[in-house]
């Protein structure tokens, strides 16, 4: 799926700004890709091509770096990012059960995004909160001692939030005309 002209413009502008800030040295490749992902949420094909051209690198080299590291995403993420910690302590305290609970509730597998782009589910090596295992990072918040019931609670909170927003929008729409 090729991005629309607007999206292309957005991507070009984002990459341009990052390149201006970080320069075009080879050693800046990883910070550049991080910067692009910070702005766009993922690494679009076009962005990788643009970076390769600016740094005078083979495109496949940039793609190789982008696919080597866990942190880089090649597809847009969901609105809410759920990262289940799979460190030793979390695993032994039931982290795999938590991951399965999310997979079951969201009907996706780890590494995937729900079709409505609301949630993406990832596993993360260790967030360093082993003493509070099992741990889940939801957006930027760390949830400690998560249980399968808490999984339902986390998702329910987002669902309620979304419903409220939708109601709010409808009300506003109703008011306008």
């Amino acid at each position: 799926m090729d991005p629309s002209a607007d999206e292309q413009e957005l991507i070009r502008a984002a990459v341009g700004t990052v390149l201006q800030d970080l320069g075009i040295e080879r050693a800046s490749l990883i910070p550049i890709l991080q910067g692009v992902q910070n702005r766009l949420g993922y690494l679009p094909s076009l962005a990788m091509r643009q970076v390769a051209e600016a740094l005078q690198l083979p495109e496949v080299e940039v793609f190789g770096v982008g696919t080597f590291y866990n942190q880089f995403r090649l597809n847009p993420p969901g609105k809410h990012q759920i990262k289940v910690c799979m460190g030793t302590a979390c695993h032994m305290m039931g982290g795999h059960i938590i991951l399965e609970s999310f997979e079951r509730r969201l009907s996706i597998l780890e590494g995937e995004t729900t079709p409505d782009r609301e949630y993406s589910l990832e596993r993360v090596a260790c967030v360093g909160c082993c003493a509070l295992a099992p741990v889940v990072v939801v957006d930027d918040n760390v949830e400690a001692r998560v249980s399968p019931i808490r999984v339902d609670g986390i998702l329910l909170t987002f669902d309620i939030e979304r419903q409220q927003e939708e109601r709010q929008e409808k009300r506003e729409e109703g008011r306008e005309p």
Binding site: G87, T88, H91, A125, C130
Partner: peptide
């Protein structure tokens, strides 16, 4: 780059 799962 403390990557050991279980070390913090």
């Amino acid at each position: 780059d403390e990557g050991d799962p279980g070390a913090f």
